[in-house]
Simulated assay, not measured.
Amino acid sequence: MAALDRSGALSLDLPFMDRAREEFIRLLTRVDEADNTRLPSAWNDLVECAAENFAREEVWMRATGHASRKDHDIQHRVVLGVMREGALQAGEGRLLQVREMARQLRSWYARHVQTLDAALALHLRGARFEPANAGAAGAAAKAAPPVWSALREAVEHVSSD
């Protein structure tokens, strides 16, 4: 499958966001290139990366009062749910479905980066959000109990609004 971002068109000009984007793309490429034996493991690594990246972005959006946080978070929750379903399918040996998910995920991810992540990057620059803060926020997101708790908190917060 063709590389998602050889041109740098998905660059957000924020090193800490670009590193996360590059890691996601690297793992998605690994999924694309995996043989059937390695596909479940490669997919699980991608799901874990997405969960961590999405949780960090949620921390950043909350910390800076990002206006589009709810819409952004909803996309993350839906996509992560589908990706977790893909992990179950991979475990059951339904690898064609997982490969189709990867193909569709590639298209979604490019649009997501160019729209919601680009808006978040602009907001973070305007808020003078420093990479040092991003590291602390990322550590807080990673140190928290499993991402399920962050997602549960986000769902409870959305439903209480």
Rank of each mutant, 00 (worst) to 15 (best):
R99P: 00
D161S: 15
A139I: 11
R77K: 05
S159P: 08
A154P: 01
A2S: 14
E58M: 09
A42V: 14
P145L: 15
G86I: 10
A139W: 08
L14D: 14
G126T: 07
E52N: 14
G86R: 10
W148M: 11
L151W: 11
G126P: 06
V113C: 01
Y109L: 07
T29S: 12
E156C: 05
E130R: 15
R152P: 03
R152L: 13
H76Q: 01
A143C: 10
E58W: 04
G65V: 02
E153A: 15
H123M: 05
W60F: 06
P145S: 14
P146N: 09
D45G: 11
F129S: 09
M101T: 08
A136E: 14
E58A: 05
R21T: 07
V79E: 02
R30C: 13
R111Q: 13
M101S: 05
L4G: 07
A9F: 04
G93M: 09
V113I: 05
A3Q: 13
L151S: 12
H66Q: 00
E100V: 11
E58T: 06
D73C: 06
R94H: 12
L105Q: 01
R125Y: 06
E48K: 10
E156W: 05
V98M: 03
H66M: 03
T29R: 10
A34W: 06
D71M: 03
A50V: 12
F54Y: 01
E85K: 06
A102Y: 01
V147Y: 07
R128T: 14
R84K: 10
A67N: 08
G93N: 11
V59D: 10
A134W: 05
R38H: 10
T115N: 09
L151Q: 14
R99G: 02
Y109P: 00
E130K: 15
A143I: 06
S7K: 12
R38V: 04
Q104P: 01
R6V: 11
A150L: 15
S7F: 11
G138L: 09
R62Y: 03
H66S: 01
D117C: 02
S11R: 15
E153S: 14
A55D: 05
R6P: 09
V98Q: 03
Q104C: 07
E58R: 11
H72M: 04
W108L: 03
H66W: 05
H66D: 01
R21Q: 12
F16S: 08
G8F: 11
G126L: 06
G93K: 06
Q89I: 04
E92S: 13
H112T: 01
M61I: 00
F129M: 14
A110H: 01
M17C: 09
A51C: 08
V78R: 00
A136M: 14
W60T: 03
A51H: 08
P40H: 06
R69I: 00
L4D: 13
L122W: 06
D161F: 14
S11F: 03
R94M: 06
H76N: 02
W60N: 05
R62A: 06
G8T: 13
A119V: 00
G91P: 04
A136C: 12
T64V: 05
A143W: 07
A150Q: 15
R62P: 03
V59P: 08
I74V: 03
S41R: 12
V79S: 00
M17A: 08
